[in-house]
């Protein structure tokens, strides 16, 4: 569904991604793990178009999206939940969700379909329904994460890019969030998950790529990686 071939992305003159290749099939949950600065967030930003690669190509659903703008990429079905959630804090929960549906055009952008999707989001995240009139900035961290995910779902994505969904959240909330991620995946959305917490990532995803300073150093099934000595030492703290 999504493939990256030798993607190189730079910040100024510094290469943050030094030729990354990966394949994600429809219906999978794939995790990207690695230390700070390994290039995980950069990879997601390059896929969603916030950063433009200098080399390589990115193909989504058979279409080359390498140099497309982010607003076009979301229309094609990739929705990015950014690191730190980035909800529109001065706007209400409802307005945030409506903005999530901004990219929908033509069929599927009618009031009725949007209401249907709102109902779906509210059934995944009942808290958001209670707080729909509240400014998003007044929500707790966990609620903001849920809003950011709900907002991303409002574009009816085929694929969801999640950047550090557990960051700064209490363990109980993290459990909730990850249960919902699996639920979203079961409902048919492919997920690419960036997660600092390797345990959590490998227990959620079926496969993973391990990044180190802008390169893929390891890849494989989650169970396999959980048993890998290198991974256990570097990322699982064992």
């Amino acid at each position: 569904m999504l493939s990256l071939k030798n993607v190189v992305t730079c910040y100024g003159t510094i290469k943050a991604l030094k030729g990354i290749s990966m394949e994600i099939a429809e219906g999978e949950i794939v995790a990207l793990i690695g230390a700070n600065g390994a290039g995980k967030t950069t990879t997601l930003k390059t896929i969603s178009g916030l950063l433009t690669p200098t080399e390589g190509e990115i193909i989504f659903d058979g279409v080359d999206i390498t140099r497309r703008q982010p607003e076009d990429i979301v229309k094609m079905g990739i929705s990015h939940v950014p690191e730190g959630r980035r909800v529109f804090s001065r706007m209400t929960v409802m307005e945030n969700l409506e903005l999530g549906a901004y990219s929908r055009q033509g069929r599927g952008s009618g009031r009725k379909q949007i209401q249907e999707d709102l109902d779906k989001v509210f059934s995944l995240f009942p808290k958001l329904k209670e707080r729909q009139k509240q400014p998003a900035g007044t929500l707790s961290g966990g609620e903001q994460q849920m809003l950011a995910m709900g907002r991303a779902l409002m574009s009816r994505p085929k694929m969801l890019l999640l950047d550090e969904p557990s960051m700064g959240l209490a363990p109980m909330i993290v459990k909730d969030v990850f249960r919902i991620i699996q639920e979203i995946n079961r409902a048919g959305t492919t997920v690419l998950l960036v997660e600092q917490n390797a345990h959590l990532a490998l227990n959620t995803a079926s496969r993973a790529y391990v990044l180190e300073t802008g390169k893929v150093v390891l890849q494989g099934g989650s169970q396999e990686l959980l048993k890998n000595d290198q991974v256990r030492q570097a990322y699982l703290g064992e």
Partner: peptide
Amino acid sequence: EDKETASLMGI
């Protein structure tokens, strides 16, 4: 409020 995130909404 946030140009980058706005563009992720398709704006």
